[in-house]
Each structure stands twice: as C-alpha cells, then as structure tokens.
Amino acid sequence: MTIDKKEFQKAPLSSSIIGIIMVIVVEMMFFGGLISAFVLAQAGQVDWPPANQPRLPFWLTFGNMLILLFSAFTLYKFLKNLKEENKDKNTLFLLTIVLGSIFFMIQGYEWVRILLFGLKTGRGLFTSFFYTIIGLHGFHVFIGLILLSFVYNVIRKSDDIHKIKNYAWTAGLFWFFVVLLWPVLYYLIYWV
C-alpha cells in the first residue's frame, strides 16, 4: 500500500534531491582527493609540465569550456522558468543536452589527437594525472548526459509539474556540479 504523504513529518526537500546532494558530496571529496594529489605531485617537480611533450590545446579547450558553461546557463534558465503555464517550453533543456554533447565530443576528439601526438601514459606523472583526471571528468559528463536525456524523456511525457520539477532539479544539480568542476580542472591542468 502507498502511504499518504501527510502521515510523515514535513520534509524540507524531496528524497531524490537530498540523495543527489549526498552523491555530489562524495564526488566533491573524490575529486578533492585527485586534485590535492595532483597539486602535491606538481609541487615536487621542477619541470612541469615536462618540456619534451606535446602541449595541451589551451585555446580550443578554453572555447570548449565556454560551451559547457553556457549549457549550465541554459539549464539554469530552464529551471527558473519551470512553472505550470510553460512546462511545454523544454527547448532550453534540450539545448543543454546538445551543448553538453558538443563539449563531450570535442573533448573526445582532442584526446584522440593528443594520444596520436604521443602523449602516452607511462611517460611520467603529468600524463598519468592528465588522463586520469580529465578522463574521470569526461566520464561524469557522460553520466550527466544520460541523466539529462532520461529526464528529458520524463519532461516530454509527463504532465505532473511536481514530478518534472523534482526530476529536472535532481539531474540539474548533478549537471551543475559537473560543469562547475571543469573550470577548476582547466585552471589547474591547462593553465598553470
């Protein structure tokens, strides 16, 4: 049997939103661990990044970062406008997915190119960290895109604005995390 919501203590946030916040906490600590390992490794090195290796594509990735940030902006707009009257206007949401996918593809293209240029693992810490951290972020972008697509499907099919809000915010929070993480990584790995 399903229970009437009123039987419970009043809840501050929906279950799935609390759940995703906890997931984000774990993820922050996870990347925190990786980043501090990276920063410490870097601090012990004179020659960083090692001189005789292919440079990372600074400007291309910068542009790519703008695309990703813009996808967070469209998502933010969508969530802000999410009201009863205009729940059909989900183009902004779709745009977020498209922009995210573009980011993902450019990033993948870049990876392959760098690999072909001969930046291989086993050639020192810098490359190891580069592939690990950027790869893990890419993996999270991928998961985020799957979540968003799943939610997009729900938004299209459902009429229940509460359900839509709940789903969109849950996936949205995760996406914001993935997006906002990127400038930090960009700064540490490409810029410094």
Binding site: V26, E27, M28, M29, F30, F31, G32, G33, L34, S36, A37, L40, A41, G44, Q45, T121, G122, G124, L125, S128, F129, T132, L136
Partner: peptide
C-alpha cells in the same frame, strides 16, 4: 572520496602502469 580516488590510481598503477606511487618515476 579520497580513498576511492587513491584506489583508482592504485588500480591504474597495477593494470596500466601509470606510476602514481612509484618513487622512481617521480610518484610518491
């Protein structure tokens, strides 16, 4: 989180040969 990150790097060290913890290659 940090332990999972560390374990992931250890897995890479074992299976891919990255050398995060290999002092000889600059790891720690």
């Amino acid at each position: 989180g940090p332990l999972i990150a560390g374990a992931f790097m250890l897995l890479l060290d074992i299976n891919v040969g990255t050398g995060f913890y290999d002092a000889y290659r600059g790891g720690d």
